[in-house]
Design a protein around this nucleic acid. Sequence first.
RNA 1: GGGCCUAUAGCUCAGUUGGUUAGAGUGCUCGCUUGACAUGCGAGAGGUCACAAGUUCGAGUCUUGUUAGGCCCACCA
Length: 886
Amino acid sequence: MSAPDLSTRTRYEPSEVEPQTAQRWLDSGVFEPGAREPGAGPDDHYSIAIPPPNVTGVLHMGHALNGSIQDSLIRLNRMRGKRTKWILGTDHAGIATQTQVEKKLAREGRSRKELGREAFVVETQAWRKEYGGKIVEQFKRVGASCDYGDERFTMDEGYVTAVQKVFVDCFEQGLIYRDHYMVNWDPGSGSAISDLEVEEKEGVEDTLFSIAYPFADGDGEIVVATVRPETMFGDVAVAVNPSDERYASAIGRKVILPLSGGKEIPVIADDHVKVDFGSGALKITPGHDPNDFEIGRRHSLPAPSAIGEDGRLTALCGDFAGQTADEARTTVTDALRASGALRAEDPYVHTVPFSQRSGARIEPLISLQWFMNMEPLAGPAIDAVQDGRVRIHPPVQSRRYVEWLSEIRPWCVSRQLWWGHQLPVWYRGGDGDPQKTEAPETYVGIEPPQGEGWVRDEDVLDTWFSSALWPFATLGWPEQTQDLADFYPTNVLSTARDILFLWVARMVMLGLKFAGDVPFKDVYVHSVIQAPDGRRMSKSLGTGIDPIDVIEGGPRPPVFKQGGDFPAYGSDAVRFGLLAISTTQDVRFSEDKVQQGQQLSNKLFNATRFVLLQLEELGLGEIEAAPAPRTDADRWILSRLERVARATEQALDGFEFARAALGLYDFVYGELCDWYVELAKPRLRGGDPDVQRDLAATLLFAIDRTLRVAHPVIPFVTEELWSHLPGERDLLAQSTWPEADPSAIDEQAEAGIAALIEAVTAVRGWRERVGVKPSAVLPARLREPLGAELEASLQSLARVDLAAGSGDAVATVTTAGVVVDLLPDENIDLDAADRRLQARRDEIAGEIKRLEGKLSNAKFVERAPANVVQVERDKLAVLQEQLAAL
RNA sequence: GGGCCUAUAGCUCAGUUGGUUAGAGUGCUCGCUUGACAUGCGAGAGGUCACAAGUUCGAGUCUUGUUAGGCCCACCA
């Protein structure tokens, strides 16, 4: 028996239920795919590979949203009878993790260098064991039905094999190569980083220095502008635009590089130079500027390094060698000023690249790194999206994907870190450091090379290299495992848009290349959740919201106007709230929507409680849930149940999660509870045992179906209530999804109940407006009979008595299908009724006038489609009838 | 510099090929010991659909432009 006792509890308390329910799921093994049934084909399997959270991570709002999305899909498909696997694991997150561990060491007065590589990796492994499991525990807490029995890590043994095989194969096919190339050097982490890890910051204030380079023949000078004077020792040319007449005669001449002992460099012509910027002359420093690097290559110029990987000026810089770049900026400009070469210093605001990882300003420099040529992989990856083998939702994201792949550039895959997949590369021979200069012999292979004197490359791979293999490496690749056969390709990948290129595109490229198929059929790019005030969620801004705080009742962050703690909303409420806001690309976190989810849970709890207590009282406690309709109301709810089941699965299959969540809410409140349960009450007390038994079975059936349909969105409360329903029941999580049953649709019953609802609402409205006491039962008469059932319902819900009273109507309530005359009664204020009548007449008359105007417009009648015109005519007729009835 | 998304009730958002008097939740106002639920029930007020022009019998919806907010990409020293 579960925690709450339904006979005494009137409120649903998620905190009393959720932890135990999560544990029941885990103990039952329902999340694990279990044994493969003979004959099961690809359509019988359903899998999602979770975007592996960083081992450094704790659950944030993005995880909570994405977890809710993926879990609703997994649970739906599990209930549909699919063999499901939600592939779980964590990512070693190279730079992020290494940075955290280094910070921890620093707090302890230790350092990475002091420990040495081996000890540092051991330290990091220990750190991962301590913190890496936290996020997985949090996934369990929110009900994520991952396959916890098969948790992977991007550096576990099998995964390492997969990564090395891919690297070696790519090398052997010429896709991976080593080259001197311009990289984004991150002085903060002391490593190269990829283009995608660079963040351009706008509005950085710098100084633009104008420096005069005299011509070597002594005749005049040329002025160049730069924000990086300290790199001038790496200058190899001055470039001007070939069409720039001012410099036409300068092209081909030499200028003297100041402060460099008379070194001469040529003036060259290149289209890249803008005539109208600065002086129109550009100094070319191929070693420290990506554009200059390209220009240098075009003109076969050397690319000397003026700044080294240590951030200090190199021997090339003469007296300035050894200074840091910052120091040198001052000393070099001082020297230029002293020599008279500095012509101007102007404040200058521009965009500057920074490292997303360390926050340090990027130092572009040339270095010997490993690269992967992505071009041969990009074409097939574009095709896969364009021919629909991979569908990206929403479609606008697939345009971004295709555009990015069309202009793909080589990927720098080596990182100067210790935490990660060390390159399967060895060097032998030569005098220099094999990390910095090419060695005579290079060996690439999974097994270390034979023989003496080999030194392994110290670098590790970019984290995203291993992530790119995630959907198949987790399933046992390169072994041809049964899991790989069953669950690859996965069905859906749900992810944030900021890693569409970083991760998604690369998975498609490498999946096609190595696993022989696309890694997933659908990519859902989910919303990004902003703080309630529209700012980005961030800890440092105070706008971050911890989902666990919302679930368990932690403190509200400062971004909320209201202070204090959150109520312990529970996982269901948070899941519902997140799905309910999950619409466009940027959405704001809404505590109201979470609250709506909490209310939905409570409503379901009480509706179930009501039904079960009633059945108990009637001695029907063990009755079986089954449709046994006797009335329009019964047929109506069965029809509506069928529609909500179809609508919910359509919404989930179509990645319209807000529609699914809010549709459930509307059904439970607006149909099941407000109307069906209310309509059932009088009949339940009615006395005929046969009627009661059938009604009980149908009510129970309605609850049963509702719990099934709501389960993917709010699994905890539905599982809990399910356990209270009579009969032997497995876990709801492993029960079945309602199959389509078109025979349950009953248009006639739907129309009848819709008319009843409209009439009840109208009578209630009239009563309020004319001030009738809520408790008063008013005598009334129908113009046209509605049948015994609907008339009885109208009497109880609108508080009228159709058998009482006599005489002429004192007021009339009209709706499209029903006209109710209210008869004289002491509870009716005749003046108020009169005023209301007049107001109602004016309303209808105004509307009639509007319609008549529209229908007398010849253009409308002529050009609008006949059915549209007919609709307007019918409307007019109905209104005229209503006016006449008043 | 190029591109994308968003703008509808006080707030958060629906509104699917153009076609009732533009909806919901929440907040607000009024009322209710309605035998499941006050995390409840009933009713009500509240919108020139950002702005401007255009297409159309008809525009929240389509076109163009403008404004504001957000995001992505990009090599002007």
